[in-house]
Design a protein around this nucleic acid. Sequence first.
DNA 1: GACATGTTACTCGGATATCCGGTGTCCGAGTTCGAGAGG
DNA 2: CCTCTCGAACTCGGACACCGGATATCCGAGTAACATGTC
Lengths: 159, 159
Amino acid sequence: MSEGVEWALHTCLNLTWVETDEAMTAARLAAFYELPTAYLNKQLQALARAGILTSTPGPRGGFRLARRPEHITLLDVVTAIEGPGEAFRCEEVLRKGPGGRAGVDYRKACVVSQAMRQAELAWRKELAGQTLADIKETVERRAPRTPASTRDWLAGRRP
Amino acid sequence: MSEGVEWALHTCLNLTWVETDEAMTAARLAAFYELPTAYLNKQLQALARAGILTSTPGPRGGFRLARRPEHITLLDVVTAIEGPGEAFRCEEVLRKGPGGRAGVDYRKACVVSQAMRQAELAWRKELAGQTLADIKETVERRAPRTPASTRDWLAGRRP
DNA sequence: GACATGTTACTCGGATATCCGGTGTCCGAGTTCGAGAGG
DNA sequence: CCTCTCGAACTCGGACACCGGATATCCGAGTAACATGTC
């Protein structure tokens, strides 16, 4: 799985702690974890295309969450970065076999493909059941100072 | 996910239908799906190293299942090909952040990492719950002629 | 006919190229802010 | 003092290199089977 997924998740989480009326630049968000700015920008663009973030150009521009954290699941973020394709992509190897028929869609008919799809479905379901708000709440319960310190750091006021 | 996983799964499934006392060469198994022989051989080596297959060199040599299909899960095959590492590998980005501590193992402490791990655990659990025998049984119920035709084809007796 | 033996052909196994997607970087299009001149 | 205009700086957005791992291939080590010669 791509490295950018981790960056995207943590960055989106950080965005839940900044004021919703001010946008955060890719440079500021990247500096938080000492990440390469341009590359994180690329990931943020993908999140914007997926409708998870909104981007505004020009001075005072940057990124902000497009909707409330309760309505952003981990699956949304992962899909935005990794793409909609499945991890196990059935290449329909059965078609080349001696019993292969031309008109059959082996992506649906193949038992192996079905089993792998079912497993991936369980994975997706687990990710879809966790929202950014859930993560945020858990973090705040374990480290109550995180929201204030993160907000202050991103606003430029180092503690 | 690697392409070889699909090949390995189908090949192992085919091996459940051949006589257990005769080994199948990589060339024969590859020809079944018109796959590149040498590359499939590489995957079969990985399965042998994982203890799923046994390999015997020389004439009349080849590969056979190391244990009964009931004791080979889909997770075993996937792990043998993809390696034991997790798809989402936490790089502990929090360590580089302003609140990062040196002595903390963020692979276990990070909430994001925990959520991703939990999802991957669900995926693994689903794969571990399906054995080659389950797949075999389902296929035989849907296409009863598959065992005989596969065994005959692999034995060199084309129908 | 049975057995020992050398040869041969066959198989896996690892070492070796090649290709593609993720990784990383850069510069241009578009926008907003602010300064400054004019009324 | 207010407003309009112009310029400039800042931001995202997409286009351009780079690299590691998956993909694909080949040849050598080892072994079982067979043919052959001998007892």
